[in-house]
Design a protein around this nucleic acid. Structure first.
Lengths: 161, 161
DNA sequence: CGTAGTTACTTGCTCAGTCAAGTCAATCCT
DNA sequence: AGGATTGACTTGACTGAGCAAGTAACTACG
């Protein structure tokens, strides 16, 4: 059933909902980015890279694995890792098992920095998401997010990559 | 009450929720942008500009009004309007009532283009949001979005602009 | 064993966004 | 009236992202 088949009465309500969602969609990532930037000089994307490496065995991952973790193109990742390398937080080396792969490894400095960035970021997420919602709402939000994500995945032609 | 005071048991669930939300936060804007770009050669931001002008009296708004509607900096808006001007969809003129203001006006071409872009975009929003949710979930989503937005607004020091 | 093809990146180009510094018009304050 | 201030943009320099073309390391096939 598409929206067109539903009672027209819903449309105003839907518009309100869409407006509220669109606002949240704009501000939430901006707020999280601003906190990370202010407190740790990192974009959310860079933080994701450091965090993934921190949790990985030997603090090391292949570029391509990291790209799929962080849901980004290899190109974007390559540039981001270059920036992190320049700051001394990550190092690159060819994979001895297959020279086509590049291994990204978190340095000690990088591990320290990532560890220090984490609590503040988690606190921000708590403050703007979980503290703002009831437990039931949080649960609803999980299901809603999954449904929307699934709907996007199903949309003809378009595949997130 | 902060999250730290809640039963630890919730943490896993919260992590799941956060992960689902983060995924949605990444894919939903990307999916909407992709649809607009593919079907109308517009970014979501540019579409917002055209749509706001289309609905405005005389299809005209001051730049600063438009900036607050689209929740953007004047700088960003100025560049976007320059692009739309180059395509012949928008024109600029000084406000006769106060020369400091600049009026942005939708051209006929621009109005046509915006009108043509709207149904496809609305359909996409329906497809990935409203069709994917029950009416109750949509209602919940509206409240959840508002609460999160309010929490961001309340966060010390940070004001969206 | 050599060559064609594939995989895993990297990089040049271009574009959109931010920030800070301009410009220009109105207004305020003696 | 007239210099200082404020408001509303605009623009130049810089940064990050995407796309497409390049490169280097392996693999498959005749």
């Amino acid at each position: 059933m598409t929206r067109a088949d539903r009672p027209t009465e819903l449309d105003d309500e839907a518009l309100e909902t869409w407006s509220a969602l669109a606002t949240m969609l704009e501000w939430l990532p901006a707020a999280l980015d601003a906190q990370l930037q202010r407190d740790s000089g990192l974009t959310h994307f860079e933080y994701g890279i450091l965090f993934a490496l921190l949790k990985a065995p030997d603090r090391t991952l292949r570029m391509s694995t990291l790209a799929s973790y962080s849901n980004s193109s290899l190109s974007r990742l390559s540039r981001a890792v270059s920036r992190l390398e320049r700051k001394g937080w990550v190092e690159r080396s060819p994979d001895p098992a297959d020279g086509r792969y590049t291994l990204a490894t978190l340095t000690d400095d990088g591990a320290t920095h990532a560890s220090e960035a984490t609590p503040g970021h988690a606190q921000m997420v708590d403050a703007v998401v979980f503290d703002a919602l009831t437990a039931a709402q949080a649960k609803q939000l999980r299901q809603i997010s999954r449904r929307i994500t699934a709907a996007i995945r199903d949309e003809s032609g378009w595949r997130p990559q």
